[in-house]
Design a protein around this nucleic acid. Structure first.
Length: 840
DNA sequence: GCGGATCAC
DNA sequence: TATGGTGATCCGC
């Protein structure tokens, strides 16, 4: 979290503390020889080594930073960083200015207000939870080392020349760390071995550890493949009453573990996790049914059993003999419980984890880093212990305080958490209420005590870095690829969204985002592409006559909702069609969302699946250069031919088309086929006799069904440019053929029927009809929701969290530092009535 | 609603 | 030769 953007000043009373100006390498300057001024001139705080990581204590930062600087200076990346640094320094100056303006009276007021807020926060002090943060040690690197013993004694990192994701502890001694480009890692450590990441493997390991997590807290909250928050409170309660057997686990010694992952002869010992294959056998054996066995006797009994009984000598999984192991009975204490979990993880994965134990997530996170690797640390749940711990803690250790916040606060004389309290009067005035509150919570050692699963996802995106692209066709092609990938991802998760955002990064590393909100939800590749392309086009124009030179492009969809069970007009009509197929009625088929780029489907209408010509004034966009508007009577003079664009795919200037349409309407020409210029993907027409008095604008306002002067029902998709720009395969219509008319044989002329509930009314006024349909849609939605909930309720009792079924390494995260989470319920449509009104 | 910035992993 | 991808939030406008 940031929240620290704008008006952030500093006080002059702490000016001597301030590292405000751009002077030297900043970060945490506890190193005494820091007195040396910036001889290497612009060592920026944002370019120096971030050693805020386990295994990076006491490095020769001076030397490392020099190497980093030498490797970076003069690059485009470096120049951009320098620019950002200057910006930050400006912000600090502004902060300083604001602080200087603070009068003693103002400061007093700030302190008063701060104390009031603190008092308030204190009311919520809650030490009743035991929160555990677990973090695998150097996860990706550890997996690779485990699987390739040759890597074990070498400095290595996972990643490539471009970027490293993790480094092992040996490499960290050289200053090589995550988020560092590989080529710099090589400069710091010429012997560095770089290994390509293998996410499939990491995901598999993640499954294993999550299975174990779930046994301590079925509602644990994974933050990434290798990290999670768990609420141990309930487990610890259970532990008190548990038997010794419940707390007994089988441990292969480390030497056995190390050997177990090395290729060996067929007759070697079993390498399965004994807690998976052998422990269940033991636990259910008659000999161990005596639940009152003492801690001591359990291990003795197990030992004897395994020595004497053949049943416990051969692994049922691999048929090999079990290796040597010991049975360890863990105590009922918090520390024992966490140690047990970590040991089980190690037995299962041959990898070590570290853990932090504290009354809330904020502290637990800090603790898990304290005794890394392969260690754990606990803050006792007392007010004193918490205060003690927090007091001297550098603010940078807190999740949510990054290097910018660190520097901003540093300029105010705040570097450790107790400083936040000392400077509360100033902070109150200089930061937003959100930020201030966050700071006060930190200084008190307050954090979230609730471990919540992530709510609904809020956005989904795809972005790619590449070698410079600057040709329009190349850029459009990239945009197309990204749109396609995003559409696929959205569809896989059955999500649709409204806001399309284009992200670009120029070759100078400047990042821009441009977004557009559609009138409707979609996850269709073409729709997304049209929007993104338009945004891209605008950016290219802004750059003209220079080419737009990019090194990255991304497409994001936000304002998401679920596509499953969604009550679109589409699905309504489809449902209705199915119902009516027996009786022969066939309401207009509006199929925009599902098959947007399909050709006009006249199958079953006029007995042909081809595009009908002649009376039609239709043009199919073939994407060819020679594609032109040929509508005969429609006044299309303002419509020029398609721009050649987008990699051979023609682009149509819709504004002009719409202009032509308006023009036509104004002229009032009533000749054949002149009334309507519709851009559409699908169209159906009603029988003259049965012309529906429909002018139905569904939730998808870009898709309207209306009646033209020929008493024809036409589906028009002509809202905004995104949906209007014809794509290859789209069809432009000026008129609808009367041959292709489905018969509404079973309906009376003025009878209007709700497509959802099938209620019929004569001369149903349009607005009332719309309201009714709205209501019906909601009703169906509610039903679906309730059904969902019921089925969920039925399955909640299962202790296995659904998240164990990870399919991608995409993750959602949640920070405890934010405002109270606004749990997003299911989206409500306008005019939704209460549940009661639906069902009474 | 949009765009820039910050942060975590 | 060469500095990532995904998701979230906050702030100011």
């Amino acid at each position: 979290m940031d929240a620290l953007t704008s008006e952030v000043p500093s006080t002059s009373s702490v000016a001597h503390h301030a590292t405000g100006s751009s002077t030297i390498s900043a970060a945490n300057e506890s190193i005494p020889e820091r007195g040396k001024s910036n001889s290497s001139s612009s060592l920026m705080s944002r370019m120096v080594l971030n050693d805020n990581k386990a295994g990076m204590e006491g490095l020769d930062k001076e030397k490392i930073n020099q190497i980093i600087y030498e490797a970076s200076k003069g690059s485009k990346f470096y120049e951009n960083e320098r620019k950002k640094e200057e910006q930050l320094n400006l912000r600090i100056k502004e902060q300083q200015f604001q602080m200087d303006k603070l009068t003693p009276g103002k400061l007093q007021e700030g302190i008063r207000e701060a104390d009031r807020i603190i008092e308030n926060l204190n009311q919520r002090y809650d030490l009743s939870h035991t929160i555990v943060h677990v973090d695998m040690d150097a996860f990706y690197a550890a997996v690779e080392m485990r699987d390739d013993p040759r890597l074990r004694n070498k400095p290595m990192a996972v990643g490539g020349m471009g970027m490293l994701s993790t480094s092992n502890y040996i490499a960290r001694r050289f200053g090589v760390r995550a988020a560092m480009p590989g080529f710099i890692g090589l400069k710091l450590c010429p012997d560095l071995v770089m290994v390509k990441p293998n996410f499939t493997k990491y995901t598999a390991v993640s499954h294993l550890i999550r299975e174990i997590f779930a046994t301590y807290d079925p509602n644990f909250c994974p933050m990434s493949l290798d990290e999670a928050y768990l609420d141990f409170t309930s487990h610890l309660d259970w532990r008190i009453t548990s038997s010794a057997i419940d707390r007994t686990f089988l441990l292969r010694p480390r030497s056995v573990l190390d050997a177990s992952n090395i290729e060996s002869s067929a007759d070697s010992a079993c390498v399965c996790d004994l807690n998976k294959v052998l422990r269940p056998l033991l636990v259910s054996s008659d000999e161990l049914q005596e639940r009152t066995l003492s801690d001591f006797s359990v291990s003795t009994v197990i030992e004897k059993l395994c020595q004497n009984s053949e049943r416990f000598k051969i692994c049922p999984e691999c048929q090999k003999s079990f290796p040597s192991f010991k049975a360890k009975v863990y105590g009922v204490s918090t520390e024992d419980a966490v140690l047990e979990m970590r040991n089980r993880i190690e037995q299962r994965t041959l990898l070590t984890a570290s853990a932090g134990i504290a009354p809330n997530t904020m502290l637990a996170k800090v603790c898990s880093d304290r005794n890394k690797p392969n260690g754990q640390f606990r803050i006792q749940p007392s007010r004193e212990e918490v205060t003690n711990f927090v007091e001297s803690l550098p603010i940078r250790k807190i999740s949510g305080v990054g290097k910018v916040t660190e520097k901003l606060l540093g300029a105010l004389g705040v570097s450790i958490c107790s400083d936040l309290h000392l400077q509360r009067g100033v902070l109150y005035h200089l930061f937003s209420p959100t930020s201030f509150r966050y700071f006060m919570r930190i200084s008190l050692g307050l954090g979230s005590t609730l471990i919540e699963r992530d709510g609904e996802r809020k956005s989904m995106s795809t972005e790619r870095t590449f070698n410079e692209l600057n040709q329009p066709e190349e850029l459009y092609e990239k945009c197309r690829e990204l749109s396609r990938a995003l559409a696929e991802d959205l569809q896989e998760d059955r999500l649709v969204g409204k806001t399309v955002t284009l992200k670009i990064k120029t070759v100078a590393f400047e990042v821009k985002t441009r977004s557009h909100t559609l009138q409707y939800d979609t996850n269709d590749e073409n729709k997304i592409f049209q929007a993104a392309k338009q945004l891209l086009k605008t950016e290219m124009k802004a750059e003209a006559p220079q080419p737009l030179r990019l090194r990255l492009m991304g497409v994001r969809m936000s304002k998401l909702s679920s596509d499953s069970g969604r009550c679109t007009l589409t699905s309504m009509f489809q449902r209705q069609m199915e119902k009516n197929s027996v009786t022969g009625t066939a309401p207009a088929k509006v199929d925009v969302e599902d098959k947007p780029s399909d050709r006009l489907d006249l199958t079953g209408l006029a007995g042909t699946s081809d595009v009908v010509e002649g009376d039609f004034h239709c043009i199919e966009s073939t994407g060819d250069d020679d594609c032109a508007i040929t509508s005969s009577d429609c006044d299309m003079q303002n419509v020029e031919k398609w721009d050649q664009n987008d990699n051979g795919c023609s682009e149509f200037d819709v504004k002009r088309l719409l202009e032509a349409k308006r023009h036509t309407a104004k002229k009032g020409s009533q000749g054949k086929g002149k009334q309507t210029v519709s851009i559409l993907n699908f169209v159906r027409k009603a029988d003259e006799k049965q012309t529906p008095k429909v002018c139905d604008e569904s939730e998808d306002s870009s898709c309207s069904l209306f009646e033209n002067s020929k008493s024809e029902a036409v589906v028009v998709i002509d809202g905004e440019y995104e949906e209007a720009v014809p794509e290859r395969g789209d069809i432009l219509f000026a008129k609808v053929p009367s041959e292709a008319v489905p018969e509404f044989t079973n309906e009376e002329p003025d009878l209007v029927r709700c497509p959802i509930c099938c209620q019929q009314k004569r001369n149903w006024p349009l607005d009332l009809f719309n309201d009714h349909v709205d209501l019906c849609l909601n009703k169906q939605t509610i039903k679906d929701i309730l059904q969902d909930q019921e089925s969920q309720m039925a399955s909640t009792s299962s202790s296995t969290p659904s998240d164990l079924n990870m399919t991608t390494n995409r993750k959602r995260q949640k920070q405890d530092v934010q405002l109270p989470s606004q749990k997003k319920g299911v989206k409500r449509s306008k005019g939704q009535s209460s549940l009661l009104s639906f069902f009474k």
